[in-house]
Design a protein around this nucleic acid. Sequence first.
DNA 1: GATTTTCCCATGCTAACCCATGAATTCCCA
DNA 2: TGGGAATTCATGGGTTAGCATGGGAAAATC
Lengths: 154, 154
Amino acid sequence: MANFLGTHQNRLDAKGRVSVPAPFRNALRSKDEANGTQLVLRPSHQHRCIEAWPSAEFEALSEPLNRLDLFSQAHDDLAASLYSDAFAVEADKEGRIVLPDSLISFAGLNETVVFMGLGRIFQIWEPAAAEQRRSEARERARVHGFTLPGSGPK
Amino acid sequence: MANFLGTHQNRLDAKGRVSVPAPFRNALRSKDEANGTQLVLRPSHQHRCIEAWPSAEFEALSEPLNRLDLFSQAHDDLAASLYSDAFAVEADKEGRIVLPDSLISFAGLNETVVFMGLGRIFQIWEPAAAEQRRSEARERARVHGFTLPGSGPK
DNA sequence: GATTTTCCCATGCTAACCCATGAATTCCCA
DNA sequence: TGGGAATTCATGGGTTAGCATGGGAAAATC
């Protein structure tokens, strides 16, 4: 099970295209073996960055939704926040994706963008914001002592 | 279960490559027989050295993360600090790995580097720092009387 | 018909792959 | 038991293929 690891810098060209880093492409290929690279992009609701979900993961995410009453308020709210601002994108033969304008401006992206691996998903950041986020995450995790649920102390 | 034992010195060449010490290679081979990516490298949280995790161990470490809500703060912080600065590396036919530049500078590595076995994982150090670390660890363990959790009365 | 989008080809560069060498160790057999 | 041969290791370097990126032609949209 190859996951999304590491942080990679790539260039966003005039047409809004970026190469997905090769290691991420490989991880995607092993997940979504059938077709080419298939991703769901959405604005993160915690940070000013783009969240990228492999389509398989995204479907698993939406599965709990199916147990809600289709006409309930809860279903409506969840579905709207999950789907309405999401984009399905597919990589071209060179392994590039085009980022929608709305997401580019949401994340404040310029010429160079940063891909940040988070295991099952990854995020796309403006470089300075990414660096800030990483040190913040380190600090927070350190405060929590890197305790993982079920892994015991230290 | 063969583990990582001992301390070994090897040279870092101009391309950033190092031979993984043969005993460590054997230990890895017995763990990861199928051999995909065999190691995950990370900056240590506690010291200025590189931590090397066999991929199986690393998955075990991160497995509890999968039980967290993907949208929670806790998941975000832990995933970012665990994955975003990690590198998956694979040994070439000669048993060498390439150390990423960021990790080389983080650990302050020069021409010669030290591999330090820690049982289930190992670390990569700048020689002088490694020596200091070892004597410090010896001293601490002596003071604490080598007590291990679950090993009976001190 | 004009503008945007998608597909395809071209290029420089870097990193992975492959082969080579020397030293040190182990193995084997006299 | 000692000496020679054969492995195993660590290390160096050359070549190639993959990767990131740019730009132009076909297709689609308005």
